[in-house]
Amino acid sequence: MTPIFKGTAAMLVGISILSVDALLIRLIEASGWTLLFWRGLLSALIISTFLIATKPSQTIAALRKPSKSLLVGSFAFSISTVCFVLSIDHTQVASTLIIINISPLISALLAFLLLKEQVDIRTIIAIIAAMIGVGFVFYGKAMPTASYGNLMALITAFMLATYFVILRKSKSANAPLYLVLGGICTAIISLIAGAEPLSLTQQEWKYTLLLCCVVVPVSFVLISVGPKYLPAAHANLFMLLEAILGPLFVWAVLGEVPSDNVLLGGSIVLLTLVLFTLSAAKKHRALNKKTSSV
């Protein structure tokens, strides 16, 4: 099996599994804070158990003296998780996933501001076009609480971008621990906000365990494998599938149809990201050819 096939298979399966996330959140009728408590706690337990079993000394050492990057990055990941669930609860799933998908462009902007990485004209144009598309999504209010839900999705995108920039700065050192500490932070925030962990019905327990013990950890493990075999631009292109598959699952099961403004804004955002990613991939190949010829 070639590296490209391995990376492609991992990304396709990982994104397909993750795309069920929004549907399961909708099916769990308990409060968002209760779901967030179990999502954070169970994910942290599963990942920490795996880390301690495979890398005990390295994991314990990192937890005893966590770096500043680990603490800040974990908090950013936690806030992104909280805002994602709150967004799904208050706006159309398509709106949430479309807005979140602008996070790679926000990452480029934050990397310019914080890491002094160069931002070319292609990235600037993509950011402007994506923001126009997001504007249409905000304008289309198919639900009474859509404005709040869209705002939560925008915060999610910013927090995810912050998380990825911190990972880049730390060269992804102890990357799984960000998910562990982020999960614990999410559980604590949820308890303070009024989570009722034992209020789930028998059916909600089934959905919650499926989401927190299978969908979230398995999908993120597979998605983390993809970039090892694929260029970053190609890996980012696969991430766009969630914005397509997620709303399709919700439409098929719950009959939620995106509004016209969401479809228009989503089309602008997705087209922008596809063109941006393909352009980045072309530039990457050109640089590789230039380097190999020297």
Score class of each variant (00 low, 15 high):
residue 127 I to N: 12
residue 111 A to G: 14
residue 67 S to M: 09
residue 53 A to H: 05
residue 53 A to N: 00
residue 95 S to M: 10
residue 121 I to T: 07
residue 65 K to E: 14
residue 112 F to V: 08
residue 87 S to W: 04
residue 95 S to G: 09
residue 105 L to W: 08
residue 131 M to P: 07
residue 93 V to K: 03
residue 110 L to Q: 01
residue 97 L to I: 09
residue 131 M to W: 04
residue 119 V to W: 13
residue 103 S to E: 06
residue 76 A to H: 13
residue 110 L to V: 03
residue 139 Y to T: 01
residue 138 F to V: 06
residue 60 I to K: 10
residue 148 Y to D: 07
residue 67 S to D: 02
residue 104 P to D: 02
residue 108 A to F: 07
residue 99 I to R: 01
residue 128 I to L: 15
residue 82 V to F: 07
residue 125 I to Q: 10
residue 103 S to R: 06
residue 91 T to N: 00
residue 77 F to R: 06
residue 109 L to E: 08
residue 129 A to K: 13
residue 123 T to V: 14
residue 74 S to L: 10
residue 77 F to M: 10
residue 120 D to R: 09
residue 86 L to V: 15
residue 82 V to W: 11
residue 108 A to W: 03
residue 101 N to G: 00
residue 120 D to H: 11
residue 60 I to Q: 09
residue 149 G to D: 07
residue 146 A to C: 13
residue 62 A to W: 02
residue 128 I to R: 13
residue 82 V to I: 15
residue 133 G to V: 03
residue 131 M to E: 07
residue 68 K to G: 11
residue 84 F to E: 02
residue 104 P to T: 00
residue 67 S to E: 12
residue 77 F to I: 13
residue 82 V to N: 07
residue 68 K to A: 11
residue 109 L to P: 10
residue 61 A to Y: 02
residue 118 Q to S: 14
residue 92 Q to V: 11
residue 87 S to L: 14
residue 136 F to A: 06
residue 72 V to P: 06
residue 92 Q to S: 13
residue 86 L to G: 14
residue 122 R to Y: 09
residue 93 V to I: 14
residue 130 A to G: 15
residue 74 S to D: 00
residue 84 F to M: 10
residue 116 K to R: 09
residue 132 I to G: 06
residue 67 S to C: 07
residue 111 A to P: 08
residue 82 V to E: 03
residue 64 R to P: 05
residue 106 I to H: 04
residue 123 T to F: 09
residue 66 P to E: 13
residue 64 R to D: 02
residue 113 L to M: 12
residue 141 K to P: 03
residue 137 V to E: 08
residue 74 S to E: 04
residue 99 I to F: 01
residue 146 A to R: 05
residue 58 Q to A: 13
residue 62 A to G: 11
residue 68 K to S: 14
residue 81 T to D: 05
residue 139 Y to P: 02
residue 70 L to H: 05
residue 66 P to D: 07
residue 116 K to C: 10
residue 100 I to E: 02
residue 64 R to Q: 15
residue 112 F to H: 05
residue 61 A to H: 07
residue 69 S to N: 14
residue 140 G to C: 04
residue 57 S to T: 15
